[in-house]
Amino acid sequence: MNPFTYSSATAVEDAVRDNASHEGAAYIGGGTNILDLMKENVARPTHLVGLNKLPLTAIEPTPEGGLRLGALATNADTAWNEEVKRRYPLLNQAILAGASPQLRNMATNGGNLMQRTRCYYFYDTATPCNKREPGSGCGAIGGFNRIHAILGASEQCIATHPSDMCIALAALAATVRVSGPNGERAIPFEDFHRLPGNTPERDNNLEPGELITGLDLPAKGFEKNFSYLKLRDRNSYAFALVSVAAALELDGDTITDARLALGGVAHKPWRDQEAENLLKGQPATPETFARAAAKVVESAQGYGSNNFKIELARRAIVRALKQAAEGSQHASDVFLNSNP
């Protein structure tokens, strides 16, 4: 790791001010990703602003009838929170599908959004990477790209966003609350992460120095009909090749509302509202699910080693929608993916 200085903030304003007063500063919450990146010499902050004393660990109701998740609440405390389990079991499932118990005990909600791609070329400083070093090229295009994007990629970057939690947050249409040098603002989840385009070095739309303070979940939690289906090389403690967050609202057999978001396929959590619209008002049948799945992968493009993901995604969407319609998943049922 490069040498750096460290300070610990006890108030959000102090953290923001301290960050702004140090050139090359970064925030550190749980540290599970940034310290790893610092050990690999991918991240080289000169100063770390420690956040774990900030009063942002609460999980509490919002005036709008939703739930606010503190940015410093751990992923474990969030997944196992009684209100999350009862009202947002899709989020419970997605969080528990990711990482290990140790990492979930450390990683924070804000940090989960800020984690960077696990593209091996991004991590390997001996290879070119436009995300790590803009203009240097992309090792993954034309290289080994089994884990890479099939949707929304660019000629600059085909990296994927690694989070499971964020796929559920995209499907649930959460709001990201941030605080920065210019005050506070709220960012709809879909506008938080970015596609790579010509600026793959930017993962998200935070302005310099902005800090995530919380995540607001809307009142609607799709607690009856949901599925988080994660497909990966081993059945635990591995990143998704493809994951699907599916949530339905049913009136009898008719779909009255639908949410569909994918992980492991794009530079950001990939919510497809056109596919959702193909589900709404339709009967919850395999044919309906197949039409929505076909819509999602319509524009998909493989890069060689990851071509298999297109068909994998299509089938995973159909299966996740079927599971959601059946209401066969339950909060903290940790074996859901081994019993499809």
């Binding site: 540290g31 790893d36 770390l48 118990p101 140790q102 005990n105 450390m106």
Partner: peptide, 8 residues
């Protein structure tokens, strides 16, 4: 439980 290698 935590991973002590990923914490300062």
């Amino acid at each position: 439980r935590i991973n002590s290698c990923l914490s300062l």
